[in-house]
């Protein structure tokens, strides 16, 4: 039986409710801390735009008292694989990383994706937030947007034909917590 290794399924944003929060650069960690305390995170992936920022942010999150792994492109592949395997096993709730996912996130338990740094390219945004499979995935994506990111936000929205709304004070758990909505996590 031949083993198919590259199915190249379409990535979709279906089922993922996307929000943005306007924030100043120096307040980003405070904003992230606020999100951690407001959201019902099953598992989260947090994206940064450089390997240095990945390591710095992981250190900050750990200092705040949250469990957090990190992986980035400059780590040895074997080390990355081991950390990601442990994350997928659920050994840690939060993963900080740079752009490594080319076929979308295939970890069902991840119900929150945070762009701590907003990407420049629509393709990068799709690889970070998008899920493979026709039904997509129940979850939310939150984009931290600085003054400099505002044009990228609107351009990527247009390019992907998607909608990214201002983050509300309270986010309906049914949008991203599977057992509340009574469905198995498919949109």
């Amino acid at each position: 039986e031949p083993y198919e290794i590259n199915l190249m399924e379409e990535l979709t944003l279906k089922g993922v409710t996307q929000y943005y929060a306007f924030v100043q650069e120096r307040q980003k960690v405070h904003c992230l801390n606020t999100l951690f305390s407001k959201l019902q995170i099953n598992q989260s992936i947090i994206f940064c735009n450089s390997t240095q920022r990945v390591e710095l942010l992981a250190k900050k999150i750990t200092e705040l008292g949250y469990c957090c792994y990190y992986i980035h492109a400059k780590m040895a592949q074997a080390h990355r694989n081991r950390v990601f395997h442990d994350f997928r096993q659920g050994l840690c709730r939060n993963l900080v990383c740079s752009d490594l996912f080319t076929r979308g996130i295939d970890v069902q338990a991840v119900n929150v994706v945070i762009n701590f740094d907003f990407p420049r390219m629509a393709e990068t945004y799709l690889h970070r937030i998008g899920r493979s499979g026709r039904f997509g995935h129940l979850g939310i994506a939150i984009n931290l947007i600085t003054y400099e990111d505002r044009f990228d936000l609107h351009r990527i929205e247009k390019e992907l034909g998607t909608e990214i709304k201002p983050i509300p004070k309270i986010i309906d758990p049914a949008l991203y917590v599977a057992n509340i909505s009574g469905c198995s996590g498919e949109a």
Binding site: Y19, Y20, A21, F22, V23, Q27, H30, C31, N33, T34, S37, K38, I145, K165, P166, I167, P168, K169
Partner: peptide
């Protein structure tokens, strides 16, 4: 903790 206003600003 902080908060978000109606425009999404933190």
């Amino acid at each position: 903790g902080g908060t978000f206003d109606a425009s999404g600003a933190f």
